[in-house]
């Protein structure tokens, strides 16, 4: 289920908040996770009008700006992105694009270069070649702008365990530069939505891992980023919570957020709109799970992965 929106080239701007023009029907609407921005498209035959009712008093340092909402454009785009460590090419000229609202699975064996590629995309590591645009900014030239517009959550580190749930939300809200009143509002909403309000004063170390991961995901989206990077978010999580976590991923994608997810669970590869598989620094396959299975003549993503990760050997399945 992909919400991809192509802005018709013929669409013209309707202006500020108004009513639906007579004879037009609403043909599309979407909103960001926080419902701050809503665009609506109306159509009559082949004529399209769009209504732009973004609040005008938007603070400029907020990520819900035109850059992240510009349509008909890949929100992540790399061209021959490369990272060399000495003579070793950890990431070898990868080129790909991810659309707005897409759930993009980023797979690969250990050591294939996923982490290095991710670090470049989130502005933590400078590329040695090629380029990457994330949320409208070049990761090499404007890493700080990129960081402001993305969310990041990893299985290894996500929240401060010796702070309470509320303290964590407040801390991250502050780091993202949200005003105090908004942090308060968002904290209440978030706790309500996750049904964590009764546990607000508990230390994060005291709550089960599954809750922690859901909370971490919500915190990574606190500043309404256009893109969220999830690095093995469900590792070690129980099977029920793992599925609830994916419900949250879908909900975010439905609201227009782009999600780039790494996972070692091959069933989760099936839940992505498109999947890329890295082998030795290169992207060896990139398509929808269905098309990849067709391409490799297999019935599961696990087999696709095995074929790519160990091309020169037949792996004996232990069962």
């Amino acid at each position: 289920m992909k919400v991809v929106f192509r802005w018709p080239a013929t669409a013209s701007r309707l202006g500020a908040v108004g009513t639906i023009p007579p004879g037009f029907t609403r043909s599309y609407s979407y909103s960001t996770a926080s419902r701050l921005v809503t665009h609506r498209l109306f159509s009559k035959g082949s004529i399209y009008l769009y209504l732009d009712d973004r609040p005008t008093d938007q603070p400029t340092n907020r990520p819900t700006d035109q850059q992240t909402n510009r349509l008909n454009m890949n929100i992540i785009e790399t061209h021959s992105l490369t990272k060399k460590f000495g003579d070793f090419k950890a990431v070898d000229a990868i080129s790909f694009g991810v659309e707005k609202g897409e759930i993009f699975g980023f797979l690969g064996a250990n050591g294939a270069g996923k982490t290095t590629a991710l670090k470049m995309l989130i502005g933590l590591l400078k590329p040695t070649g090629g380029s990457a645009m994330v949320a409208g900014y070049d990761v090499e030239k404007h890493p700080d702008q990129v960081k402001r517009r993305i969310g990041y959550m990893s299985q290894k580190f996500s929240l401060y365990e010796d702070l309470t749930i509320t303290e964590n939300v407040r801390l991250f809200g502050g780091i993202y530069g949200l005003p105090t009143t908004e942090i308060k509002e968002k904290t209440a909403k978030l706790l309500d939505r996750l049904e964590l309000a009764p546990y607000a004063k508990r230390l994060v170390s005291e709550i089960p891992l599954g809750w922690r991961q859901k909370l971490a995901f919500s915190v990574a989206m606190l500043h309404d980023p256009g893109v969220v990077f999830l690095d093995e978010p469900t590792s070690g999580v129980d099977p029920l919570t793992r599925r609830q976590f994916w419900d949250m991923i879908y909900e975010a994608a439905h609201a227009g957020v782009t999600l780039m997810v790494t996972t070692h669970y091959m069933d989760e590869a099936e839940y992505c709109d498109r999947v890329s598989i890295m082998v030795d620094g290169r992207i060896e396959a990139l398509d929808t799970p269905g098309a990849l299975k067709k391409q490799f003549g297999t019935t599961t993503m696990d087999e696709v992965f095995t074929r790519l990760a160990r091309p020169d050997q037949k792996v004996n399945h232990v069962d």
């Binding site: 690969g108 064996a109 250990n110 299985q155 093995e232 590792s235 070690g236 070692h264 091959m266 696990d302 992965f305 095995t306 990760a309 160990r310 792996v315 399945h317 232990v318």
Partner: peptide
Amino acid sequence: GTGVDPVSRRE
């Protein structure tokens, strides 16, 4: 097996 890719895990 934690954090290990599915193929390495099988090996």
